[in-house]
Design a protein around this nucleic acid. Structure first.
Lengths: 188, 188
DNA sequence: CCTTTTTTTGACTAATCATTCCAAAAACGA
DNA sequence: TCGTTTTTGGAATGATTAGTCAAAAAAAGG
């Protein structure tokens, strides 16, 4: 028996994610949030505690979704290198909206332990999946065998962060595609 | 005859840069700013106008300094590739403090035209210098001749942005060095 | 239909925000 | 030393902030 609720918690959280990724934590007011989430102010506090807890939940949910999407692309092709390429291509497709992960790290660095812990957790899950597929590509001869798979994974996510900053800074789609190509070129 | 002033405008601006790069625009209050700049509140408004103008001046000054530092490294070695490498190594050295350029793009994207214009200007100056040195390295055979020099330059700055995000996210020095090595590897 | 739970609404703190005014203080130029 | 300019500090403004309270409204369950 599914619990009956007045509003969908996840839907509201997604709306909050939209506000936070566009304006950051400090740049998002509770008014902006309740308007976007289409709930009463009191419901926000009853359901999520306060603005900071809501932000952490938003980052957590966003990171989980983003990590899942990355992993799905990575594993969606039979040839490992094609999976890696698909992951990079998705970055180009989705570059229209800001990344909450990048934004959150940029805004808070390591100053908020609970936030840093969220990032570490998502990072490890993602890196593990990437390393697996990279090792596979190395066996197939598609990725340079002399490079440690972990270092290659780190490099890929470094490039992805850079591409997202470039996109936020106004880079065109072709520009981003070129960055993706050069990134792949670096590891083969 | 040098103008006599009660306080050094550039020194105060540098202090403001320090606050902004650590806390962003929204995260920096005027109280934090005047305390760090060691000037009275009224002096801030008399000298810089308001918080937003101060921020734009800070971004402009920071970008100019950073661009100059990049170019100095690029041109500081006789062999072009060594100059490029030196530029990447500086990123690792200076990764302790957040980059105001990255932070500013992340916080505002393209929403503030005057800010976007500042970034475009600094970007072009930097990219021109890099492209020059990259073309030189291509002639020497140190950088792949088949790659457009402009695309290589974009890739370098994409990597630099990614490395700075990684640093802000807690990456170790060795981690950053590895990212720098792989970046160079991509273009040779 | 009635009761219970959930959500909304608007008013209300109390703090903080950027900014301005003004008078005192300090430094300057002569 | 005197008058001018610059800087300062405190008080005040009005807007906005996050968060709370209590009562009305709406929905759910029986």
């Amino acid at each position: 028996m599914a619990r009956t609720k007045e509003f969908d918690r996840d839907e509201a959280l997604d709306a909050a994610i939209g506000v936070f990724r566009e304006h950051g934590y400090e740049g998002s007011s509770t008014d902006m949030l309740v308007r976007a989430m289409k709930i009463g102010r009191q419901s926000l506090y009853d359901t999520f505690g306060d603005k900071w807890k809501l932000y952490c939940l938003a980052v957590e949910r966003y990171s989980a979704g983003e990590t899942n999407a990355h992993i799905a692309k990575l594993r969606g092709e039979s040839r490992a290198l094609d999976g890696i390429r698909a992951m990079m291509e998705r970055i180009v497709e989705d570059a229209g909206e800001a990344c909450l992960g990048v934004s959150s790290i940029c805004e808070f660095g390591q100053t908020m332990p609970e936030l840093a812990a969220l990032h570490r957790a998502a990072d490890r899950r993602l890196k593990d999946a990437a390393r697996e597929r990279i090792a596979e590509a190395q066996i197939s001869g598609d990725v340079d065998k002399t490079l440690p798979a972990g270092a290659v994974a780190d490099f890929l996510f470094c490039s992805i962060a850079g591409m997202r900053i470039a996109a936020r800074g106004g880079a065109s789609r072709e520009h981003l595609q070129s960055l993706g190509r050069l990134t792949l070129r670096a590891i083969t």
